[in-house]
Design a protein around this nucleic acid. Structure first.
Length: 448
DNA sequence: TCTGGGGTCCTAGGACCC
DNA sequence: TCTGGGGTCCTAGGACCC
């Protein structure tokens, strides 16, 4: 059936605003003495490098490097490492996103440090020169938060990402790259290696390499059939079309800029190897409790619960290093108690004595709005409500207390671990964490 | 000694149904 | 002897993202 629509889909204009080395920038806002010094931020357990300042990158530190392998290099150059401070980064992120949301008709908060803006219509009514708009966004965010950003503007999301990268790499652009016409787009595509295109990971990069495709410009010209076959089906086709300037990806649907989750996961590596059921269960019970809180916070109920455990991939034991099991919950629920009971039974099924576990976690999925049952034509009795009334009141009170007085203040006995001293072996370590500068609990003290 | 924690989307293949 | 074809649902797993 030929496409008989009388008009073409309106051309898109997307901006991608990306905070430079976000975690490092957050630390620097509150410790200006860190400017010019190599700085890295570490993952949980101070395991891997997850953010690097320009100086740290110049030392050759890579994303994901195990900290114990690069520590001496960093120290030798007067560098500093910080544990992740999610409270601080989350708060700074909300401030940045709030500022951006006020500047565009629609936004999609893509990650903690990136935001897509839909700029359609802006050229006509608000700001014909989008490069000037980009500059204003950068200035505003920096003025109000101290966080440096770069802005890429283009007809598709993939090109906006690409433009953002060019803006970062070429100082003469002063942090803003607007791919205004075909000529500029062709130029930008030449600047970026194929492996750095959004949607090209390690596997695809190698396939492209084998075909002699090394630049984004070449990638934009591969036959769509080949892209479909070799780059993940429709995903690969979309990728190529987007590079050609045909928008295939819309702004994520959301009212407040945050996307509706389809699943949520709480998992942590242990601080040390764990071998007993009780220890794994203590950790898992904590994760389940937290997951149920997240679920209630978004007013959802879950139909699927997955529990998994992992053993070390680095100690020479043969794979598999992961076992998991899925429980289908007959009625969607957000009740911590029910989820704990199901999770414990599930853990029993996959736990094996003798293994050295390094991680456990829970995934909740199959969401429906809480208290709103899907019609089930085959079970005559009315479906039970997801959380019975008195129970819901208890859980709401619990969430309220924990929100007010700090996570883990009140918990169900089934997940009781308390603030043990010394902390249990499974507890995550944060040995190099900076204060949560933006929290009332950790306000600065100034001494005369 | 020490190797993160979240997510997304898509495909393939099997079970099952009519 | 001859043994369809199309659909759905589910799960596992792969690829990607930050």
């Amino acid at each position: 059936m030929p496409d008989r629509r009388p008009f073409r889909r309106p051309a898109g204009i997307f901006a991608l605003v990306d905070c430079n080395n976000f975690y490092v920038s957050c630390e620097r806002v509150f410790q200006p003495k860190l400017e010019g010094v190599p700085v890295v931020v570490l993952s949980n357990n101070d395991g891997c490098v997850v953010a690097r300042s320009a100086e740290a990158k110049a030392l050759g530190l890579k994303m994901g490097d195990p900290y114990f392998q690069v520590r001496s290099l960093l120290v030798r150059h007067g560098g500093q490492a910080f544990s992740s401070n999610y409270a601080l980064y989350g708060d700074m992120s909300r401030r940045v996103m709030g500022l951006l949301a006020a500047e565009a008709p629609a936004v999609e908060v893509y990650s903690v440090d990136e935001c897509f803006l839909d700029l359609r219509g802006m050229t006509r009514w608000v700001q014909p020169d989008l490069a000037a708009l980009g500059k204003r966004l950068r200035r505003r965010v920096h003025q109000h938060t101290g966080i440096p950003t770069c802005v890429g503007i283009a007809p598709t999301k993939t090109l906006a990402k690409l433009a953002n990268r060019v803006a970062k790499k070429r100082p003469e652009l002063a942090g803003v790259c607007w791919l205004q016409d075909a000529e500029l787009r062709a130029w930008a595509l030449e600047q970026v290696p194929a492996e750095d295109v959004w949607g090209v990971g390690r596997q695809y990069a190698q396939k492209l390499q084998e075909q002699g495709i090394t630049t984004a410009a070449q990638l934009a010209q591969v036959p769509l059939g080949w892209a479909k076959q070799q780059l993940g089906g429709v995903v690969g086709q979309r990728l190529v079309r987007e590079l050609q300037g045909f928008p295939c990806l819309a702004l994520g649907e959301s009212e407040d800029g945050t996307r509706q989750r389809q699943s949520l996961c709480v998992s942590r590596s242990f601080g040390g190897a764990v071998t007993t059921f009780d220890q794994v269960w203590e950790a898992l019970a904590n994760h389940v409790t937290r997951a149920a809180e997240k679920l209630r916070a978004q007013s959802s109920a879950a139909h699927l619960l997955t529990v998994f455990v992992e053993t070390s991939r680095y100690d020479g034991t043969p794979p598999p290093h992961s076992r998991s099991t899925v429980v289908t919950l007959p009625a969607g629920t957000a009740d911590t108690g029910l989820l704990l009971a199901q999770a414990r039974a599930a853990l029993r099924r996959i736990f094996g004595p003798g293994a050295r576990y390094v991680k456990t976690g829970v995934v909740l999925g199959g969401f429906e709005p809480e208290g709103q049952r899907q019609l089930d034509l085959f079970s005559p009795p009315p479906a039970p409500v997801s959380i019975e009334e008195p129970r819901a009141a208890v859980l709401a009170a619990l969430d309220g207390l924990n929100q007010r007085f700090g996570r883990g203040t009140v918990t169900l006995a089934a997940a009781l671990v308390g603030k043990q001293q010394p902390p249990p072996v499974w507890a995550t370590r944060f040995e190099r964490r900076s204060p949560a500068y933006t929290s009332w609990r950790e306000l600065w003290t100034v001494s005369a």
